Simulated assay, not measured.
Amino acid sequence: MPQTPKPLSPGLKIALEYGPLIVFFLAFMVMRDRMVTLGGREYGGFIVATMVFVPVLALSNLLMWRLTGKLSVMQLLTLVLVVTFGGLTVWLNDERFFKMKPTFIYAIFAGILGLGLALRRNWLELVMGEVLPMRHEGWMKLTQRLALLFLGLAVANEVVWRTMTDTAWVNFKTFGLPIIMFVFFMANARLFSHYGTDRQD
């Protein structure tokens, strides 16, 4: 009988989830003012950082899957879009594709959550219900708020990459987006407490 994979320690989980992003940030900061010639083509620091980020993220997801036996829908979708847009960025030597990637990710998730609400199916509850026990009304409110947040983040990403410098966008992606998500869930602590349940009813 196969062994059930052990849950990851908090430190290892954080390292696997945010490590690739930190690697991207460090690679960009080191290479942002440099040009690298590979295969007869010149690449700027942003493209080089993308070359580093894509395989590191793939390796991180592989390790996550080997250690836990599963990947979330968001992790799989993110990996597919990173490989797709990262590949286009390197292949066409055009950083705009990689910068658009968060827009597509957040827009897709906003659309999925919005469609679920329209169909009266709370997919967020189905995915996270065991991790965060909460009454159905609470999940409906959280889903509405999260859909709006994802939509707002998609718009914010478009504004930042189209109007600001590469460094500003990298800082926004590396630090701004995770901080916004953290603040969002902290701001909803009262909702979790009010609608929380141990599922023993």
Rank of each mutant, 00 (worst) to 15 (best):
G176D: 01
A49K: 01
K101P: 02
R32S: 13
D33E: 12
P102L: 08
R96T: 14
L38M: 13
V80E: 01
F25Q: 05
R121E: 14
L153N: 06
F25D: 10
G196P: 05
F192V: 06
T84L: 15
I14D: 13
L151S: 15
F24D: 02
V82M: 07
V127Y: 14
F97H: 02
T4V: 15
G129P: 01
S193G: 10
T50M: 11
G86M: 08
F184I: 07
G152T: 04
S193K: 12
A147M: 13
A118L: 15
R32D: 12
W161D: 11
V80S: 04
V52S: 01
A110I: 06
P20T: 01
I14M: 15
L113S: 09
F85I: 00
Y18I: 02
W139Q: 10
F184A: 08
F192K: 03
A168P: 01
F185H: 05
F97Q: 05
Y195H: 09
F150L: 12
Y195S: 08
G176K: 06
G138Y: 00
G116L: 08
G176S: 06
P2D: 10
N171L: 15
A156C: 10
W123A: 12
M35N: 13
V183Y: 04
G152N: 08
K173R: 02
I105Q: 03
K99N: 10
T78H: 01
Q200S: 12
L191Y: 05
E17P: 01
L59D: 03
M64D: 05
G11T: 07
L21V: 10
L126R: 15
T143M: 13
L119W: 11
L12F: 04
V170K: 02
M100H: 06
L132C: 11
H194W: 10
L76E: 11
P5K: 01
L79P: 02
N171F: 15
V160D: 09
L148S: 12
R96N: 11
M100Q: 11
L113G: 06
I180E: 01
K101S: 10
A118N: 11
N188W: 08
L92K: 14
L16K: 00
T4C: 11
F98T: 03
T143Q: 12
G129L: 08
F185G: 00
R120K: 15
D94M: 09
A189C: 09
V23D: 00
D201Y: 11
D201E: 14
V52K: 00
L148K: 08
T163F: 14
L62W: 05
L177H: 00
R34N: 13
L67E: 06
A110P: 06
S193R: 14
V48K: 06
